[in-house]
Amino acid sequence: MESRAVIRIEDVWKSFGDHQVLRGVTLSVRNAETLVVLGPSGCGKSVLLKHIIGLMRPDRGSIVVEGKDVTRISQAELNKLRMNFGMVFQGAALFDSMTVGQNVGLPLREHRLLKGAELDRLVDEKLEMVGLSGTHHLWPSEISGGMKKRVALARAIALDPDVILYDEPTTGLDPVMAEQINWLIRDTQHKLNATSIVVTHDLHSACFTGDRVALMDDGKIAFEGTTDELRTTENEAVQNFVARGHIPLPGESRKRGECDLDEPF
């Protein structure tokens, strides 16, 4: 097992005006692991993800990705790094002037990796992976919120990235679809041997997809550990966060297609 840290976030601070959002976040993500980030709404999870991919600059601190500090490197280097990244935005962020197929194919087309029939075939393949085959001609305004989320996911994995950032990939999906996406995250992880960060509110999804879990609270990492440690920890922030939830046991509801309608959430 490799345990080299691919992403090392060190003492990152960020404020918007006088609203201090991140207050010294320190977190490492190891090679080929899936780290789940939990935390109450508005605690800065999305902001943290945007820092990792260089869309926001911290007020203080450093974020080292594959040996390079994204807060210091040039635009060209950042773009090179981003070629190895995929990101699913919380709001999907599909380009509404393009069809579903064009959305998924855009990174491949723009970076001149594929074109013509080959591109179409890959787009269809990625859409099939998220359960949306035959939708490539639809416009984002014609599909549901959950479908948008899945198109965003297909787009994020189009370049077969080494690092994938998922911002609430299963929020707004029905339990069956959520389960399918959880599987997809795990499959992608295994197939691409990718390093992933999954931001979620869904404890079931967290335990199913994650190797390790971090809990954000008050702009800091309040807990970091394996999913097993999450179940047994006495940590107060974890206790507060999961008080209303239910941490699934290993093996629970892990078969493809199976879903538990009594699931809290």
């Binding site: 981003r82 935005f89 380009f95 990174p107 723009e110």
Partner: peptide
């Protein structure tokens, strides 16, 4: 509109300037 719906961020994130 692209800015407020994060489409511009998405473009940046896929290394399309």
């Amino acid at each position: 509109t692209m800015r407020v719906t994060e489409q511009i961020d998405a473009m940046d994130a896929m290394a399309i300037e």
